[in-house]
């Protein structure tokens, strides 16, 4: 396992695109990573960075968000560390009911399930003053992807019928 990249960006939304571009162009050099997995990783990195930036904004800190990419033959790992005060990923609020005006903001609730669907392994570590998310993608062909997000969307949009 080698550290291939370390990056710090200001906690502002305009830097999210840069992070996903840098990480995905690094990952694109991996022979054994299918294009679809590369897309998955790129999206997961974007979601994770968005969460980190939002956490910093909520916490009122201008400290940088830290990104570290580690590589081994069979895997690529991306660590995103924020100092946004921390949260418990298992205790995320459920999406607001569809009758609630705030439901239009439910994209925030979609990010973490999406990350879990997109990467092979996602682990949230609670730090003293923030959260470290470690995401692992193994080389090899793309899987079918999970069904978790589908379930979530279905629940949120159940009143369409």
């Amino acid at each position: 396992m080698i550290v291939a990249l370390e990056l710090e960006v200001p906690p502002r939304a305009e830097y999210i695109a840069i992070v996903r571009l840098v990480v995905s162009s690094l990952a694109s050099g991996r022979r054994n990573l299918a294009d679809e997995r590369l897309d998955d990783l790129k999206l997961a990195v974007s979601e994770a960075c968005t969460n980190a930036v939002e956490a910093h904004t909520r916490a009122g800190t201008t400290d940088p968000v830290k990104i570290r990419v580690l590589e081994a033959d069979e895997r690529i790992e991306v660590e995103i560390t924020d100092r946004g005060g921390g949260f418990d990923p298992d205790r995320l609020p459920l999406h607001p009911p569809v009758t609630d005006p705030s439901r239009l903001d439910f994209e925030r609730g979609l990010g973490i399930p999406l990350i879990r669907t997109l990467v092979d392994l996602a682990r949230f570590e609670r730090l003293e003053d923030g959260t470290r998310l470690r995401m692992v993608v193994f080389g090899g062909p793309a899987g079918d992807g999970g069904d978790e997000t589908t379930e979530i969307l279905r629940a949120v949009l159940a009143d369409e019928d």
Binding site: L43, D105, L110
Partner: peptide, 12 residues
């Protein structure tokens, strides 16, 4: 490229 923020806006 679209992430969940974009999807959320689309759904909204």
């Amino acid at each position: 490229f679209v992430d969940s923020a974009g999807l959320g806006a689309l759904i909204g």
